[in-house]
Design a protein around this nucleic acid. Structure first.
Length: 1041
RNA sequence: GGGCGAUUAGCUCAGUUGGCUAGAGCGCUUCGUUUACACCGAAGAUGUCGCUGGUUCGAGUCCGGCAUCGCUCACCA
């Protein structure tokens, strides 16, 4: 038969750049990933929930990892025949995007206040369009098989409807409230932040000791503080009741310096006594604590307990101000007005020093909350904000009860009545993350959801403030704050409440005012205009991004009204809950928790997903987290360009272990020469290791280039003369090699599998073919188990070993001499290639898709006992059913063959037999029975002339299974000296191991307690070793030792 | 300070209910380009599995202690 040596249309090496675009087109044309809903009867739904990336900036390798793993899961599920939904989308990321846009505007010297709200939002929209498109295109390049027609953005109408409905329901249920609270305030962006948007940073500061005179002139007390500027708002001084000085100070008052405010001394157990207890603060404490309820959360609590006034002495920008609640300002204090908090601190200290009231200043290191966006210190700030009462059992309790009981520490708070769908069905991989989830909920506080931003979902509440004289005086038992009792109030709308209007009142007794809060549901524009006509105004604030993110699992599927968005009909029923959420660690609290609470609340206890897989964090070469803001993020497209997408995906899969984060040392690609080199690094102003903004070409120091960090940090701009250097990393080399290896194996297999025969029974096949098929079966099982348990590295390893070790190294080498004349073997070869392509596809979709038509064109692959359905695209091909391929006997036989081949190769190398010298192998009958059925393979793999029965020949001795094989026909005499040395080494090695084995078997504990099969195995090994020892000793004797 | 994780070959990392005479990739040494692939093949070297006690017939794996590194929560007296 005249098989061509190579297939001409396939080039000698895999060129991803030339092939990938057309493969993407194939998937686009076939609408791969698009699911039609409602699902047909009898189908099995499977969904992965994609965390929508922020439109702040393009994706980096951390996202590429997440996307790759999700796509592996999704492609695997799809091939297994499930109706598989993976919906793509992006998140508007309120504060993050707004800050990014403001930063860009600032480069042109413009500020937010230079624009109207509408104009500014338009600018952000442009940014969103640009980056949103870039992100989606990155995902496509990665090969993500999403349901593209269903792409969503968190501010799409369907998502806005969900936000509106969710807010309305929560408001109506009393789970959303408005109140004056101390919140985390970011004075740079002038917005409130949630607790988890605050990052603690260590600060080298000072402890200031201030003397506060007693009003009666009988002396002073000394308070310790790190924030002297807040003293303007002090309304008390606290002392521990146990403090011996407390008694004599009872009832006394302080005359607050500068301000001239007379403030009480109160007793509170919260106060640490100087030098006592375990608290490290005790070493710095004086026993007297200045209490500033409006500027410190702990002081706020003390203030509540002792009925102290909260006097806010700052404006929203954290400068000293008497316009936000400070009414008793003195002449002395006026000179501090308008100072920033930093300047005010200096000025106050100077005042105390001048008046000899400054006792001491000591160095003090402590952690201070900073905004995770603007990175300025957070100001605890008293303001009116909106909150979700997540501490309510209907939210927090449901989240806690959803945890898989095996992963819960203790028992969750009980439900009042019985159990419910969703209870205990949420599992984390790795399980330890369930603990973080649990602990987060145990310490939960109400969630501040209002943001003083322009970019986001606006709060759907209209309000109007009325004096008691207009509205009526509220019954005294209603107290201060929010109430749903509206009957006493004579304001318009108070008697109106229906499916789209919910009224709450916020009572302010001090000012004798009531704020009427009217929450409007969706599709009720007429009510909105009625309200506005009556003088109500919509709240200016927008919602925390995570409010809409929390609804992502259901809003994208059309909740609450799929009929209003017909393309979403049937999705909720089929895909809520979804199967898996794959996300990063830091998102567990910000997002996972809130999705669970909301999904369960709005969907009768149903979970948003059942499994949460936490993937590793990608770090740079210095162990720093890869991030957009740090500027060390690598665009996956750089790697796609340097190594190909499959190589990137393969390495990402291989890196995903359950414990380790991933370090990726980076290289640069010189734009002039294409050469990869290690860049120079510098320490940035934030103390991080980053690439120097400008790098020299490794070949020509006169030519320079700009790095991504240079570009992002604004310190360098790429030009034609000084172009941008793309990133790369040698970490991906082995992935590229792997893909190329498979490509060439396929080329070879295709060239050898013309006119494949029909196989009637697997038993009619030879050992080599049966072995290959059994290995395929094993790999398939390993891959399935690995993906099902999110052990992606195991999956990658199984695929690698199957392709490279089993298929290339052994199978292809073994069949070379026979395949041309064996039609059945050609069928096995072709079918193996078909099945391996399927198994490899989820990880390496491009190369497998590129080869697929060539495989199918060779005939119709197939074997008895093997379930594979034909398909035009491997992405839609069935996942192989391989159970019938399992062949224990063939595997064992082939293992023996491999061992014999290895021994012969080793012996040839040891004896320096030239690689092309063909030897004659003389072997005993017992081994011939193993080798004879595969003689052609044996001759080829060991470069042998022929195989004969063992006689009295001399020659190179090979010891296998306690037997001797002789290799004849080497040109040179065997070097007796080195042969002796080799044998002696071998003998001492064997003696050592025999000693160990005998010791083990001589131990009664082992023989009695260890599993029988292990003891049996040990005995066999011992027997074998002893036989090997005898052979080796014999040989040594013959050499005449 | 609380919690979690890591420490295995020169480097990056596997090693899932204890059975290991501890693996992979890269790198290194030697040899090999007529015959799929040099993004290749063959052969080889390299480890007191952080330290220290304990449980066990048996510990890289389980338990206690210590050391170093990382993450996270708390902490503006």
């Amino acid at each position: 038969m005249s098989t061509p040596i190579t297939t001409p249309e396939l080039p000698r090496s895999y060129d991803p750049a030339a092939i990938e675009p057309s493969i993407r087109d194939i998937w686009t044309q076939s609408d791969l990933g698009h699911v039609n809903a409602p699902l047909p009867q009898g189908s099995t739904p499977f969904a992965v929930l994609m965390p929508p990336p922020n439109v702040t900036s393009i994706l980096h390798l951390g996202h590429a990892l997440g996307a790759t793993l999700q796509d592996v899961i999704v492609r695997h599920a799809r091939m297994r025949g499930m109706e598989t939904l993976w919906m793509p989308g992006t998140d508007h990321a309120g504060i993050a995007t707004q800050t990014a846009v403001e930063r860009r505007l600032l480069q042109d010297g413009k500020r937010r206040s230079d624009y109207t709200r509408e104009a500014f939002v338009d600018i952000i929209h442009e940014w969103k369009d640009e980056y949103g498109a870039a992100i989606l295109s990155q995902l496509r390049e990665l090969g993500a098989s999403c349901d593209w027609p269903r792409t969503r953005f968190t501010m799409d109408p369907v998502c806005a409807a969900a936000v509106r409905e969710a807010f309305f329901q929560l408001f109506d249920e009393g789970l959303i409230f408005r109140g004056k609270r101390l919140v985390n305030w970011d004075p740079a962006t002038e917005t409130a932040l949630a607790d988890d948007e605050v990052e603690m940073e260590d600060v080298k500061g000072h402890m200031y000791y201030l003397r506060y005179p007693l009003s009666d002139g009988s002396g002073h007390v000394t308070v310790a503080t790190t924030r002297p500027e807040t003293m303007l708002g002090d309304t008390g001084v606290a002392i521990n009741p146990e403090d011996p000085r407390a008694a004599s100070l009872k009832g006394k008052k302080i005359m607050l310096p500068i301000v001239g405010r007379e403030i009480p001394i109160v007793e509170d157990e919260y106060v640490i006594m100087s030098g006592q207890g375990d608290d490290p603060k005790a070493a710095f404490a004086t026993g007297f604590l200045k209490v500033t309820p409006a500027h410190d959360p702990n002081d706020w609590e003390i203030g509540q307990r002792h009925d102290l006034e909260a006097i806010n002495v700052m404006g929203p920008d954290a400068s000293i101000s008497d316009k936000h609640g400070w009414e008793d300002i003195s002449e002395e204090a006026r000179c501090f007005l308008g100072l920033s908090r930093e300047d005010a601190r200096t000025a106050i200290i100077e005042w105390f020093r001048k008046h000899e009231l400054l006792e001491e200043i000591r160095d003090y290191d402590h952690a201070v909350g900073h905004s995770y966006r603007s990175h300025v210190p957070i100001e605890p700030y008293l303001s009116d904000q909106w909150f979700v009462r997540v501490t309510d059992d209907r939210l927090r309790g449901e989240a806690m009860r959803s945890i898989n009981p095996e992963q819960y520490d203790g028992t969750p708070p009980p439900r009042e009545t019985g159990s419910r769908e969703g209870d205990g069905e949420l599992s984390f991989s790795a399980p330890r993350y369930a603990r973080s989830f649990q602990q987060w909920h145990e310490n939960l506080r109400d969630w501040c959801i209002s943001r003083q931003l322009w970019w986001g979902h606006r709060i759907p509440v209209w309000s109007k403030v009325l004096k008691f004289s207009e509205a009526g005086t509220p019954p005294t038992d209603l107290g201060n704050g929010m109430t749903d009792q509206t009957s006493w109030c004579q304001a318009p709308f108070c008697d109106r409440a229906d499916d789209t209007l919910s009224i709450r009142l916020q009572i302010d007794r001090e000012n004798e005012e009531v704020r009427i809060l009217a929450c409007v549901g969706r599709d009720a524009e007429s009510i909105e205009s009625d309200l506005e006509a009556a003088g109500f105004a919509q709240d200016n604030d927008v919602l925390d991004t995570w409010f809409s993110s929390a609804l992502w699992p259901i809003s994208t599927m059309g909740w609450p009204a799929p009929s209003a968005f017909p393309e979403t009909e049937g999705l909720l029923e089929a895909f809520n809950p979804s199967s898996t959420l794959s996300t990063a660690r830091e998102i567990i609290t910000l997002w996972v928790s809130r999705m669970v609470m909301f999904n369960r609340f709005f969907r009768d206890g149903r979970l948003p997903f059942r499994d949460v897989y936490i993937h590793p964090t990608i770090q740079d070469g210095f162990g720093q987290k890869m991030s957009k803001s740090l500027g060390n993020g690598v665009d996956p497209r750089d790697i796609i360009e340097s190594h190909g997408t499959d190589a990137l995906r393969f390495i990402m899969t291989q890196l995903a272990t359950s414990t380790q984060d991933v370090r990726l040392p980076l290289d640069l690609v010189c734009p002039f020469t294409g050469k990869t080199f290690t860049p120079e690094f510098i320490t940035s102003s934030t103390g991080h290791q980053v690439t120097a903004p400008i790098q020299k070409s490794p070949d020509d120091p006169n030519r320079t280039m700009v790095t991504v960090y240079g570009q992002l940090s604004g310190t360098a701009t790429a030009t034609d003369e000084e172009p941008l250097a793309r990133n790369s990393s040698s970490k991906f080399d082995s992935g590229r090699s792997f893909v190329n290896k498979f490509w060439n194996a396929a080329r070879f297999a295709l060239a050898r599998s013309e006119s494949p025969g029909t196989v009637d029974s697997l038993k009619s096949l030879g050992i080599i073919d049966r072995w290959m098929l059994s290995r395929i079966h094993r790999a398939r099982r390993t891959i399935d188990a690995a993906i099902d348990s999110y052990q992606f590295n195991t999956c990658a390893e199984a695929v690698y070993d199957l392709v490279w070790r089993d298929f290339c190294d052994w199978y292809l080498e073994s069949i070379k001499p026979t395949v041309a004349d064996d039609a059945a073997q050609r069928q096995v070869l072709l079918t193996s290639l078909d099945v391996i392509s399927r198994l490899l596809h989820p990880i390496c979709p491009f190369v497998t898709e590129a080869l697929w038509p060539h495989v199918q064109a060779m005939g119709s692959p197939g074997l008895p006992e093997l379930g594979i359905k034909p398909s035009d695209s491997v992405s839609l091909a069935s996942w192989p059913e391989t159970d019938g391929l399992h062949d224990e006997e063939a595997e064992q036989q082939f293992e023996r063959i491999k061992e014999i081949v290895n021994s012969i190769r080793r012996a040839r190398a040891d004896h320096d037999v030239p690689p092309r010298t063909k030897l004659t192998m003389a072997m005993p009958a017992s081994l011939r029975s193993v080798i004879d059925p595969v003689q052609p393979a044996m001759l080829a793999m060991c470069t042998l002339e022929k195989i004969i029965d063992l006689g009295d020949e001399d020659g190179i001795q090979v010891h296998v299974e306690g037997q001797i094989i002789h290799l004849l026909g080497g040109d040179d005499e065997v070097d007796a000296e080195s042969e002796r040395a080799r044998l002696q080494d071998r003998i001492s090695e064997l003696r050592k191991s025999i000693g160990a084995l005998k010791g083990r078997l001589g131990n009664p504990g082992y023989v009695e307690k260890a599993p029988a099969h292990l003891v049996e195995e040990t005995r066999k090994t011992l027997e074998q070793s002893e036989a090997d020892l005898v052979t080796a000793e014999d040989s040594l004797r013959k050499l005449g030792a």
